[in-house]
Every structure is written in structure tokens, then in C-alpha cells.
Design a protein around this nucleic acid. Structure first.
Lengths: 346, 346
DNA sequence: CTGAAAGCGCTTACAG
DNA sequence: CTGAAAGCGCTTACAG
């Protein structure tokens, strides 16, 4: 039975075709498909054989239309090339597949405009829910207006003003506090907070945790020790100079995240300052590279894949119970001490 | 107008609701939605206002059902935590969004069993096409039977036997040849091929390119210089010993990929062998870390994001023209020379 | 246990 | 330019 190359797109068999071939109604076929106990064993067997024979493929879109349900979840993230989000996406997808949902992927590249277009397009596919890690500078109220009450949304990672949606975040504040306390315990007193944009919520929270620890140690906050930079490695390396210009007494830095820390590390080495020996630094995220760089990076483990699974589970709970109170879940983070943090020199 | 928290899931407005409110038929509304020139300007304006007023959301699933079309593409990859695939997925998604498609994501984690389940589930959502980067040890004929002729598939990266599907791959053979020739030109003669599984098609091709270059240089292939290992950093670091045990004269290695090369680098440093000075090595992929590690890694740039866009475009061409001949596209790779490759010692 | 009928939200000829 | 009718592939009461 050779397939002709010019065969026009074959129509897939439908419940109708199966029903006709078996001499039953399509209701019966539908019941067999969903394993209803209403169908007799003999009929079921006949139908199942015919399904296999014709290579029947269930049309979930048609079923969803009729049942007014949906079996997809939209996942909107900024940037898959960030390992943190890539791992997160993996976790989301794993958990969703286990629950019989399929993931509709969208990436915004941190552009609020692109995000709006994307959301509009995703909505037309009527997802049962959405996991949204908002692009920087997203307008919460605008998004709320765009999305309305359908579908339910779980916001991840970045706080959105006035959204009224469930929210899952990392414990940024506590994490940064742990890192700062660790450096204090090693004897550091002149500690910078390095990297990130001061107007992003996660940066604010991490700076807050840093301030908490300094306060508790009776050390004042010195604005010269707060250095902003785009959280990329290259930018961070370039800002290394600014760090020492503004306060030459600095012996340690709590970095906004691992990428920034790794960039700072490069910047330090380029100036002949040995990370982990002459200067202590900590990151945030525990990306795979943190353990493998030399000296290995002291950082905060956030387990993005587990966060992904958690996000999927929270959202599905919401999908199943729309009336439950809005949730705000803060996931714990863990300090992982490695070689990059050392005692102060001198 | 406060929203009651106990409002049962609001039904979204449909073409029917709009038509009724405007006093036109739903056919007219449908025409407005798709910008048909058949509708009068005044009617169109009235309908459009009403669409906005009621917050109408197009139901693409219903439209697709009726038109027998699809606006989704399934993307099946192994592992998003591999930056190569994450970048590839970004590229695919970017290109698909631009063409009005949405991405159905699925990840197999290199498990053929999980892959089959996943494909079954994705098929039920009737994607217009599928981009499939097969799990290792996939059975091509089995997949072909499972997927049939619908939807069209573009296989990426890993050759599948007897599939009859379009195929996009990297020029593994040529790339490995370039790397090997580069090491030869630097004076190396005892060059290993390090890492990868000998039964994977990409490893075979890279080994072939390595052999091509050695052949051309009149150097025989020595099986002691071919070391297998799972392409992870940890594994590669652990196999470093095996490399020198099997042939202590080795001065350079063409590595299966960047992860392997970075692992080998760690293994070398742990033994006091300085990469780029005492020993030369090359990678494959040019992951971001390759440029940032020290010494930076000589490798082959494959531009995964561009490959993703290319894959999406090839697939969409197939979706639009089912009768075109099957294609086999080999994407070029570029040698990027950095510090990790140096002249032989002594 | 099985079948006939209606309907999910759209689009597509076909009349007018 | 607009409307009435049929239908995409399913499911869901409702009869029998």
C-alpha cells in the first residue's frame, strides 16, 4: 500500500467513521473513548479495535469546545536563554503533562509591548490558566484589564501592582539577608550590594534583606556601596571599577544574582583582585555554573525546576477552585557556601 | 461595579452576543472579525465598537474546527536546561509567533517512553506541524507509525532512520574537521576525540570529521584516543584520567561539545595540567560560557537561536506545501578560535 | 446498555 | 452588502 506523494491531506477518521464501521451510534463511540462503564464489554472491544484499525486520533479541541473546558495552560516568560527561566519552564511543563495539560509557550524578551501582543494571541487559544512571569516594567492594571477574569493567572517572580492574582515568589529578602549575614560572620564590614535595577521588585527585596542584616549588625547603609547595573555578566564586569571608585575600602559584595557575581568575578580578576581571597562575593540563583566555576560561587539555591512544578500546581488548584482566597506564596531559598566568600584581607 | 468573588465563571461573549446587540447576523460579525471588505463601513464600525464594549475574545479553536485548520505547532525537545535547546526553543517560538502560530511545548528528558506519551498527547491537540528533536535511542519507524502523515514533522539535530521527514542538522562532520585541522595546524599530532556516545548520530558525525582531518594529515586513527562519556560536565571531568592512561602522549583533544570540554578543563586543572598552555582543547556549540571561561574555549558556533528560526521556517514551508520534495538541510558551523587551543608543549 | 437530537463557537457557501 | 442554514468533531441529557 504505497502512499502517493500527491495524496491531498488525508482527513483523519472521526467518531462518525468509527461508529458507522461498527454499526453503533457515535454517542457509544464517545463513551468508549472516555472509558464509560455504560458500554458493554463486547461493544467496547469492537469499537476499540476499530479505533486502532482506522488510526483514530482524539480531537481534543472539539471536545473542549463542546464541554466548555480547556486542556492547555499558557506559560509566559521573559527569556528561555536565562537558565533560571529555562529550568522553571521545564518544571512547569513536567507538572502540567502529568496532569494532562499541554503548555502553550510564549516569550516576551522583557518587552511589555511584545508581551501584550503575545497575551492577546494566547488568549484566543482559551487556555485554562496562565503562568505569567511579567516583563520588566509591566503595567499591572493594564494587564489586568487585558486579561480580565479569564483565565486565572499565577504571577511568578515579579510583583505586579493591583493584579488580584495569585503570586509565587522567591524569598528574596531573606536570601539576601542570609548572604549578608554570612559575610558579616566572616568578619567583613564594608560590604557592597552589587547589580540589578533598583526599580525592579526583586532587586528592592534583595537590597532590603541586605539592609536588614547590616542594621542588625549595627552597620549603617552607605549609598556609595549600592551599585546598579543590568544583570548581565558583561555589564557587571564593566561596573567593577565603579565599585572601588565609590568606596575603596570595600572587601565584599552581595551580588544581585549569579550572573552579576560571575561578571564581577571577571572584573576583579582583570584588576588582579583574587575572588575568594582578596575579595568575597555571593550570588543568587545557584545556576549550574556557580558550582563549577573556580573559586565556586557562594550563592542562594532557589531550585527553579521545583518552583516550576510548584507554580503549575498552584495554578491548577486555582483552575479547579476559582473561589479560593488569593494566595501569595514565598518559596524558601537556601544559602550554599562555597569558595568565593572568604575572610577579609589584611 | 464590584466583581463578586463568588461569580461563577463568566461566559465570554460570542459572535452571537455581538450580532444580537448590533442587530446583525453572526455571519456579518464573523466577516468583520476577519476584516472582510464585504461589510459596509458603518456596520463595521458598529460591530467593532460592540466587540470592544463586550470584551470579545476570538475563539480560535472553534474557528479552527470549522475551517479544518490549526494555528499551533508542537515543539518537542529533550531538555530545556541545556542552553543549546533553550536557545533553539526561543528561536522557534519567535519565528512562530511572527507567523501567527502558537507553540505547544513538550520535553522528553531523553526518554523514548516519555516521548511517545508526549507525542500522543500533543497529537490530540491537532498541531499544524511538529518540530521534533528526538530523544536518544528513538526508534524512527515506531515514531513514523505513531505520527503517520499528520501532522508534517521537521526532525532536528538527530538523524532518524526511515522517517521520510524533513531534517535540519548541524554540519557536525565539517565542524569537527575544522577543529581538528586547527589543532593540527598548531602542531599537535596526538589528538584525542573526547566525549559523547558512539551510538549517537551527532557523535558519529563529529568523529568522522575528526577522522577526515587526521586522514588528510596522514595520521592514523588510534582507538585508544577515542574516549566515550555521557556529555555532562561531571562525567567528562571524571573521564580525564582515562584519557592519559590510554595514551600518555596526548597533547590535545577535540571534545564532543562545550559541556564536555568544560568538564575536561576542570579535570585537567585538577591534575595540574594547564588548559591552553600544557594541553589544547576545543568544544562544540559555543554556549555563552565558552567565551567567558578562562581560558576561553575554542569551539564551533552553531547559533542555536538562528537554527530555531530556520526550523520554524522550514516546517511552515512544509505545512504550506505538502507535496514539495523532502528536504535535508545542513546548517553551517563556524570555528571560533580562543585561548583554550595552544601549541603542543615541549 | 444504545440511539436520536441538540449544541459548543465559529465559518462558508448560497440566496437575496 | 446582509441573513438563514448547514456543518467542523465532539458530548450531553433524554428516551427507550
Amino acid at each position: 500500500m504505497s502512499e502517493s506523494a500527491s495524496t491531498p491531506r488525508k482527513r483523519l477518521p472521526t467518531v462518525n467513521d468509527i461508529a458507522r464501521a461498527c454499526g453503533v451510534s457515535r454517542a457509544t463511540v464517545s463513551l468508549v473513548l472516555r472509558n464509560s462503564p455504560l458500554v458493554g464489554a463486547e461493544t467496547r472491544a469492537r469499537v476499540e479495535q476499530e479505533l486502532k484499525r482506522q488510526g483514530y486520533v482524539y480531537n481534543r479541541a472539539a471536545a473542549n469546545l463542546r464541554r466548555r473546558t480547556s486542556s492547555s495552560i499558557a506559560l509566559v516568560i521573559n527569556d528561555l536563554s536565562n537558565p533560571f527561566f529555562a529550568e522553571f519552564a521545564m518544571g512547569v511543563d513536567e507538572a502540567l503533562v502529568d496532569e494532562g495539560f499541554v503548555t502553550l509557550l510564549g516569550s516576551t524578551g522583557e518587552s511589555p509591548e511584545r508581551q501584550e501582543l503575545l497575551l492577546g494571541s494566547l488568549l484566543e487559544h482559551s487556555p485554562a490558566g496562565m503562568i505569567l512571569s511579567p516583563a520588566e516594567n509591566s503595567d499591572g492594571e493594564r494587564l489586568r484589564r487585558l486579561l480580565g477574569n479569564e483565565p486565572p493567572v499565577l504571577v511568578f517572580n515579579r510583583e505586579l501592582s493591583a493584579s488580584g492574582w495569585d503570586f509565587l515568589a522567591l524569598d528574596n529578602r531573606h536570601g539576601a539577608r542570609l548572604a549578608t549575614e554570612h559575610l558579616l560572620a566572616l568578619g567583613h564590614r564594608a560590604i557592597a550590594f552589587f547589580g540589578g535595577h533598583a526599580d525592579s521588585s526583586s532587586c528592592q527585596q534583595r537590597r532590603q534583606g541586605y539592609a536588614d542584616a547590616l542594621d542588625a549588625a549595627g552597620i549603617g547603609i552607605d549609598p556609595r556601596r549600592m551599585i546598579e547595573c543590568t544583570p548581565t555578566r558583561v555589564e557587571a564586569a564593566q561596573q567593577t571599577g565603579a565599585l572601588f571608585e565609590r568606596d575603596p575600602s570595600i572587601t565584599a559584595a552581595v551580588c544581585y544574582n549569579d550572573n552579576v557575581a560571575l561578571g564581577l568575578k571577571l572584573g576583579l580578576m582583570a584588576r588582579g583582585v583574587r575572588p575568594g581571597v582578596d575579595f568575597a562575593l555571593t550570588g543568587f540563583d545557584d545556576i549550574p555554573e556557580a558550582a563549577q566555576t573556580s573559586p565556586a560561587l557562594t550563592t542562594l539555591a532557589v531550585e527553579p525546576r521545583a518552583r516550576g512544578r510548584q507554580a503549575a500546581e498552584l495554578l491548577l488548584q486555582r483552575v479547579r477552585d476559582r473561589e479560593a482566597p488569593v494566595r501569595r506564596v514565598v518559596a524558601p531559598v537556601q544559602l550554599v557556601v562555597r569558595g568565593s566568600s572568604g575572610a577579609p584581607r589584611g
